[in-house]
Amino acid sequence: MLQFSRIPSVGELDYLKENDEMILYESFTMINPQTRNTFPESDEPYYTSLEMQLRHLLYKYDKGWISSERQVMLSSDECISAVHFIFDNEKRVIGINVFQRSSNLFNLEDDVQFFNYFINKYLKGHKKIKLTYFVSQPHIFKNKNKKIED
């Protein structure tokens, strides 16, 4: 399992296989990958939806509607399929674990940037937050630079 402290380039990843449509790479994890802290410019409806879902999840925990911190988790059938918040003894977020089941590597920076934006906007008063970001099936599409075309 490869581990990075930044978003890796395609050449740094272990090749897994390819088919007519795409090249697939081995899974990897990033710990606190650095990006801009602004809202990503691509796929605004998706990132807005994800932002509101995560805000609502934290709101439910804060109000006691979710009783166990282990349940402060969003799951989805989207490419970013699980987001789990980790808390300290004072109920402050100290970590976010992200499981991304599939990622077009040309769009990965926007996905990670979203989480850095979210941490910067909503969790500033918390201690340093550890972002652990696992990409299960990284890939690139042949003859395309982006999955989501502008």
Rank of each mutant, 00 (worst) to 15 (best):
M1S: 12
M1I: 03
L2T: 10
Q3T: 15
Q3N: 08
S5G: 13
I7R: 08
S9G: 02
S9C: 06
V10Q: 14
G11D: 14
G11R: 08
G11K: 07
D14T: 04
D14S: 13
Y15G: 05
E21C: 01
M22D: 12
I23S: 02
L24A: 14
L24T: 04
S27Y: 05
S27E: 09
S27F: 02
S27G: 10
S27M: 12
F28Y: 05
T29I: 10
I31L: 15
N32A: 00
P33G: 10
P33I: 02
R36H: 02
R36Q: 04
N37A: 01
T38L: 14
F39P: 03
S42M: 05
E44I: 12
E44A: 10
P45F: 03
Y46N: 04
Y46G: 06
S49M: 14
L50N: 08
L50G: 08
L50P: 01
E51L: 00
L54M: 15
L54G: 02
L54A: 12
R55Q: 13
R55C: 15
H56E: 14
H56T: 13
L57Y: 09
L57E: 06
L58E: 11
L58W: 09
L58F: 11
Y59H: 01
Y59A: 09
Y61P: 08
Y61M: 05
G64C: 01
I66W: 09
I66A: 06
S67L: 07
E69L: 04
E69I: 03
R70E: 13
Q71G: 00
V72N: 08
L74N: 14
S75R: 10
D77I: 14
E78C: 13
I80M: 14
I80G: 05
S81L: 03
F85T: 06
I86F: 03
F87I: 10
F87H: 12
N89W: 03
E90Y: 11
E90W: 01
K91H: 11
V93E: 01
I94V: 15
V98I: 12
V98R: 03
Q100Y: 04
L105D: 07
L105G: 07
F106V: 04
F106G: 15
F106S: 12
N107L: 07
N107K: 05
L108P: 12
L108E: 10
L108Y: 00
E109Y: 00
D110P: 01
V112I: 15
Q113W: 01
Q113L: 08
Q113E: 15
Q113V: 08
F115S: 12
N116I: 07
F118Q: 06
F118E: 05
K121C: 06
K124C: 06
K124Q: 07
H126E: 13
H126R: 11
K127W: 04
K128Y: 00
I129H: 11
K130G: 02
L131A: 03
Y133E: 11
F134P: 00
F134C: 07
V135H: 04
V135Q: 13
V135A: 02
S136Q: 13
S136H: 13
P138F: 02
H139F: 15
H139L: 11
F141V: 00
K142L: 11
N143W: 01
N143K: 07
K144D: 03
K146W: 04
K147G: 00
I148H: 02
I148E: 12
E149R: 13
E149D: 11
E149F: 07
